[in-house]
Amino acid sequence: MKRRNLLGKKVGIAAVIVAFGLLPVFTQSPYWMHVFILMWIYIIVTASLRFTITMGEWSFAHVPLMGMGGYASALLAMKLGLSFWVALPLAVLITAFIAVFVYLPCLPTTGTFFFFASYAFGEVMRLCWVRFKNPFGGPAGLLFIPAPGPIRIPGIPAIEFGPLSKIPYYYTVFVFMLLSLLILYRLEQSRLGRIAEAVKESNLLAQFVGIRVWRYKMVILLIGSAFAAIGGSLYAHYTTLIMPVDFYWGLGIYIIIYTVVGGTRHFGGPIVGVFLFVLLRELLRPIVMYVPLVYGLILAGTLVFLPEGLISLPEKISAWAMKKKIAAA
């Protein structure tokens, strides 16, 4: 029974992946391509935030670090003329290196203190981009970030990235998202994920079974920042302009809302959250002014009535149905 369920799940996930992989066959409208490209980027950022949450601390520096990835990658491409394909991995390394300095002072703290201390250092980093015009461009940010170089596979024409078609971007970001999710999922199932769970449940006990709590916390935070940097780099090279205000705490809150409303307990939670909110935004386009209002109400409702997030809804419903059955019998 359990095995069949698992198989069903695998088939379902594969079907979803194939469906979205074939999306450009059905619609090539630049508008919808844009919506989905951004959605895939948000999924990378949100899923990596949830990965850091598995060890019990909420980082509020996640979005500034995503920005760091974007800035690093853009500057490498603009000042050193590196191709996107080289700049992205370098930006990931640079971001992870900077994340050490953002998170290291925060490590002795936990809970609310960690959350706001990480905000503080992330914000100082973000304000550096505003303040130092050279090289960060000040409040106006960076313009004309080069698009990724063409992908040349022998035998087929080179795949060019440019303003003409969004399809190459769509597939690039889609593949990056799938790989990121796969790696994050595997990490969570691995020993690292188990250690994260132990650290979250009891910092103290974890130490006394021999876990180096600080080291593992740092490793998890750095992995999270690396994936945030991938999201940031994709964002920068896709939109071709980034500004410090893009990575203001407002976006951090949105990412947190996606995670919380989707559910932090389950790997799929943040994915569900991003889907829901991005599609909701499109549905509400005629009354776009009220979108934040709807977001706020959904958030408040979820926190009060469904604290484990939307992903726990099927579980809750079946538990409720079971209870009813028992009551009826």
Partner: peptide, 30 residues
Amino acid sequence: EVLFKNLSVFKHLVMSRHLHTQVGFWGSFF
């Protein structure tokens, strides 16, 4: 009682063997 409140008893004891598990990171990843 300092325990992992949301972990099963079995998982507790698996965790408690942490030091003696020789599984490398990559091994457990792949």
